[in-house]
Design a protein around this nucleic acid. Structure first.
Lengths: 341, 341
DNA sequence: ATCAAAATCCAAAGCGCCTTGAATTACTGA
DNA sequence: TCAGTAATTCAAGGCGCTTTGGATTTTGAT
């Protein structure tokens, strides 16, 4: 069923039917209702491609998720973020176009999306400290929102981020207050800006308390369970081993927990652990007393907000770049306790 | 840069340029090269929407991922599957349109996708034992491939699945061979067909060995870490507690491991655990001696194959329904050992 | 040199929608 | 009653591409 058929069926012109359905004022209310009823009965929806062509809007948003290599880790955060964004798009009649792209192909994918007019804007995932995608997207003139921030950017741009620096400073301070000094930071890859900012928070807390950082306690890598396990095993075997771990994700913490229990130690008693909790739905850390003390921030919520921000930008291209900094909530669980010598 | 501009620039008709770029034979090789060069220089790509409208093909595939309620668990398997599928689409010039949909909205989303002509076909995720989506998609005539199988379907349809029944039968048999009789099955929701089939495999092994199933040892729920922890804690506290766990996912097994170590027991010695391993990239279980004994099957690979199957079906709508059953590999890790009284 | 066949190229129609500008009808006040 | 205005409706053009059917040029064999 297309517009032509529908309008013939109704004995009206295509113009009138189109206007009736799109809420234009210059159509009689009675007619409008008649049209709407017929459209519903015939299960009529405007052909998306024809509509797009006529209006010049793709009614789609691109999400380009980078992976380093073909079979590399897909950041588990992305599914949750996308679940949030998808909610927003559904509400506004937009589609979500997803591409998982190897980093080396990213530029050509963005260019292609723009040239093909496949999307009205994109969400940039996993920004780097100094991310070439900003310049690229500005050059090709595709509206975008970054999930995270680009630390070294000179220009303004739309972003939404969790306050990584503050979260990790706060968490470090909590550990210091508990008497810990040997605090290992098990971080994500520090070319990624979120990890870099977390490290800064960690360092600031040490500086504020005039404590020295032990370089061996700093590590960064892709956030897998194995990484957590291996790093913690290694650190716990040291003569001067850490008494606390500050960990960038729940998944990594699971590996750390494995190493700790294998070493015969007790989380929350012998060793303290604080994680950042993105509130992934299959890792529920929200019990009355959560298993992990954590800095918490819903990444699904971030997805909703990022999508809203982007749609706003698309609606009004003249808008001054929007930014939004979400605060995390430090929640005490059973994985932290006072330092024991 | 659009076709009109490009053809004017070249002093050719739009017809010729279009044909040159689309590989039609009726164009001089010299001309074709000239056109291709100019197109590359001008970074010309056909407008996707215009192309779609003209050809009647959307050049997009829909993935509708169901969640029970708005903030419910997004199956972590989906991200990995989609990463595979996306590879295939990139290769063939298709886009991936993603919707996270509450179950109650699914029907309207499929109908809308079809009526809007937004996609050429869809992948059906997380099929139920008796899934209404098959009839729906057949009714609206949208090509589809199911990731998994619908147990009670009378009609033929395209699917790709892992041999869940055989995998869990084999795993159960391994445990029985090791002397275990009290084997707990920690399964996914058994309205979902994968979980139902796994349960059947488990039951068949028991029957083959003339063993009785203890009903208290069967459980099923959404696959979260917490579920694993709580269920294992509960079972281990029983007077007659299981000596082995057969677990539907890595994530759930992490919770079980937590419960086991909290009970002061040792995995692989006091208690055996076998998991099904979807080879999620952030849970690497592929060490020389993996931490978990597992039935293994790459869900990313399944994504690649499912996408190829669907594209084939779209290319040739007359094709007889294709099916593909992937076998898993039983790999011995350090989480299993002989039964100790 | 000639003519049919093959090789190139082109003009124009059409995909399904929105939107401009004009035409028709209904309503208002004098 | 009638012009003047407001309320409805419509015809037609255009978005950027593919494709049909036809026109033109080249080629090859006689």
């Amino acid at each position: 069923m297309n517009l032509k058929q529908l309008s013939e069926h109704l004995g009206l012109s295509q113009t009138t039917v189109s206007r009736a359905l799109n809420g234009y004022p210059e159509v009689n209310e009675t007619t409008r209702r008649r049209v709407e009823r017929a459209a519903a009965e015939g299960n009529y929806r405007p052909n998306l491609r024809a509509m797009s062509l006529a209006t010049g809007k793709a009614m789609a948003i691109g999400h380009v998720v980078p992976v380093a290599h073909k079979n590399d880790v897909v950041n588990p955060v992305f599914a949750e973020f996308v679940a949030g964004a998808s909610q927003t798009y559904n509400l506004h009649g937009y589609e979500l176009m997803l591409t998982i792209a190897e980093t080396k192909n990213e530029e050509s994918i963005y260019r292609s999306l723009a040239a093909k007019r496949a999307v009205d804007g994109v969400i940039v995932h996993s920004p780097l400290r100094d991310d070439p995608r900003l310049a690229l997207l500005n050059e090709i003139g595709l509206p975008f929102v970054v999930h995270g921030r680009v630390c070294d950017s000179k220009t303004e741009y739309n972003w939404i981020d969790m306050n990584n620096r503050r979260a990790f400073k706060q968490a470090t301070q909590l550990l210091i207050d508990l008497g810990h000094k040997k605090i290992a930071l098990v971080n994500g890859q520090e070319t990624l800006s979120f990890a870099w900012l977390r490290r800064q928070g960690y360092e600031e807390a040490f500086k504020d308390n005039q404590l020295e950082i032990e370089p061996a306690f700093l590590s960064s890598a892709a956030l897998t369970e194995t990484y957590g396990y291996e790093k913690a095993s290694e650190l716990l075997a040291l003569e001067k081993s850490p008494s606390a771990f500050l960990v960038s994700s729940y998944i990594v913490a699971l590996g750390i927990r494995r190493a700790i229990s294998q070493a015969g130690l007790n989380i929350g008693k012998d060793i303290s652990v604080i994680i950042h909790d993105d509130e992934l739905s299959y890792f529920d850390n929200s019990a009355a007393v959560p298993q992990f003390t954590s800095t918490r921030s819903s990444v699904r919520e971030a997805g909703i907000l990022a999508a809203e921000m982007l749609l706003k930008q698309i609606d009004d291209p003249g808008l001054y770049p929007q930014t939004q900094l979400l605060e995390s909530h430090l929640t005490i669980g059973s994985s932290t306790g006072p330092y024991k010598a």
